[in-house]
């Protein structure tokens, strides 16, 4: 390589480094990203929906061998849920009567903004509502079933980046309400989630449902966070921990809700 060309390459590289440093430091990168997201959203929507259909097809083919056992399991689960519904219906009636007697108002509703998922990268997703809709960082993101998915980690003008619960940097207070067992839910990356720092004297079991607490001020109390899959107890550790199943499946979701006020 001759000296002139080498000089040109070094100057070009230096200019690029300065350019990207300025773009990052001034926050102009957010404008560039937002412009790309706006421009690409319609194409990404097409890819996202196509991905949905393709993954459903592959999933059906992959799961076809387990259909019988899954069907039996679902029948049992259905019977259990019917019994549960009957029990809850009784409680609802009782609650209604008590509310009337005590003159308590309806449960407080959240202020929500509906958003669509446009992209996913690792344990982050991109949704199509941003600061234009009053979205701020750290706002909770939930599904229609009030299952918590994560929190807004970065806000652009028309889009927001959501950090999923499973991200390594995600950590928040949670509890199993009926057992009064509180702890921390921590993401471990690649879709795995753990319920940690649970006192050893609390009897937690597989399939217990873990819900959020208002500790930390990010999530409202009582949102569904996960289901206990596997419990790990060790004599050497002062606390017990459990692996959680994530209750939401991004492949089945197109829309989410950002809670803007609670």
């Amino acid at each position: 390589m001759n000296t002139d060309l080498r000089k040109k390459i070094i100057i070009a590289a230096a200019c690029l480094i300065v350019f990207f440093a300025v773009v990052n430091l001034t926050g102009f990168s957010d404008n560039i990203k937002n412009a790309f997201y706006v421009f690409s959203a319609p194409i990404q929507k097409v890819f996202w929906n196509a991905g949905n259909r393709a993954s459903n097809l592959f999933e059906t083919i992959y799961n076809s061998k387990n259909l019988k056992s899954e069907n039996d399991y679902l029948k049992q689960e259905n019977q259990r849920l019917l019994a549960e519904i009957a029990r809850i219906e009784n409680i609802r009636q009782e609650n209604k009567i008590l509310r009337t007697v005590l003159d308590i108002g309806l449960t407080e509703n959240f202020k929500i903004v509906l958003c669509d998922i446009t992209a996913k990268q690792g344990d982050f997703i991109l949704v199509d509502k941003g600061s234009d809709y009053g979205i701020l960082e750290d706002m909770p993101v939930v599904t229609a079933e009030k299952i918590v998915c994560g929190k807004v980690s970065k806000v652009y003008k028309n889009f927001s980046q959501v950090m999923l619960l499973t991200n390594k940097e995600s950590s928040f207070g949670a509890e199993i309400q009926e057992k009064n067992a509180s702890g921390l839910i921590k993401g471990k990356g690649s879709g795995s989630l753990y319920f940690e720092r649970v006192s050893k004297d609390k009897e937690i079991q597989e399939r217990d449902i873990v819900v959020t607490t208002s500790l930390g001020g990010i999530f409202p109390k009582g949102l569904l966070a996960g289901e206990i899959k596997k419990i790990r107890r060790s004599d050497a550790e002062p606390f017990q921990q459990a692996e959680l199943s994530v209750l939401f499946n991004l492949n089945d979701l197109e829309s989410l809700f950002i809670i803007t006020d609670y």
């Binding site: 990404q44 996202w48 991905g51 991004l250």
Partner: peptide, 19 residues
């Protein structure tokens, strides 16, 4: 450009052991 959109929207559904 199209490959990146495909990567971040379509391929996110297909992973092997989380990768």
């Amino acid at each position: 450009y199209f490959l990146t959109l495909f990567q971040t929207s379509f391929l996110t559904r297909f992973n092997i052991s989380g990768y």
